[in-house]
Computed example of a mutant assay.
Amino acid sequence: MSDSLILEVNDLVVDVLTGIYSEETGKPQPLRISIAADYAVADRYDPDTPLEASKNYMDLKFAASEGLPAGVHFKLIEAVADHICETLFVQDARVLAVTVKIVKLAIAEAGEQIGITLRRQRRPEHGG
């Protein structure tokens, strides 16, 4: 079994222009976004290991918030997840794979979680 490192940001609520129905278009709706990024693991993490040996968690948060283009309407939340994956791949060649879970909060009627999970592996066109 090989070592692995998964960086996570969970349950970030972000207002995003998304949806295909008339009541959804034109206004942002809240999405609960969780991200897990498989990261190239170092041989060892000592107490004085610098941040450069890993990834700043704020980069994950950025990809799911300020990293989303302002004013762009994503018809599908799959496209939102895809954009987050691409942002993380471009940010850092050590990101090997990304899993993004998105829950559409506005359509829940009884607290259920309705949404998607997208997992992408780094491809050669991402570099690395």
Rank of each mutant, 00 (worst) to 15 (best):
A40Q: 10
E86P: 09
V90H: 10
L5S: 06
Y39G: 02
G26K: 04
A36Q: 10
D15T: 12
L7P: 07
A40F: 08
R94C: 05
L96P: 00
D82P: 12
Y39Q: 02
L76D: 10
I6T: 14
E66S: 09
P30D: 05
Y21V: 00
T49V: 04
C85Q: 06
I33Q: 03
A64S: 12
G19P: 03
V90W: 08
C85G: 01
I77Q: 05
I33R: 01
T18E: 07
L12D: 04
P47L: 01
H83E: 12
A93Q: 15
L7H: 00
V14G: 01
E23Q: 12
V80N: 08
L96I: 06
D82R: 11
T49M: 04
T25C: 15
G19C: 03
E66Q: 14
L17I: 09
M58S: 13
S54G: 14
Y57P: 00
F74I: 08
K61V: 06
A70P: 15
P50G: 08
Y21W: 04
T49K: 07
V95H: 14
D38A: 09
K75N: 15
E8T: 13
A81Y: 13
A42C: 12
V80K: 09
R44H: 13
K55W: 14
L76I: 10
L5V: 15
V16S: 15
E24R: 02
G26M: 10
P50N: 06
D82G: 12
D59F: 00
L5G: 06
G67D: 05
L17E: 15
A53D: 15
R94D: 07
A37M: 02
K55H: 08
I84H: 11
T18G: 01
D92V: 06
A36E: 13
V14D: 05
P47T: 00
L96C: 02
T87V: 06
P69H: 06
P69M: 02
G67A: 08
P47H: 00
G67C: 11
A79G: 11
F74G: 14
R44D: 15
D3Q: 05
D15H: 05
L7V: 09
R94N: 13
V9R: 04
H83C: 11
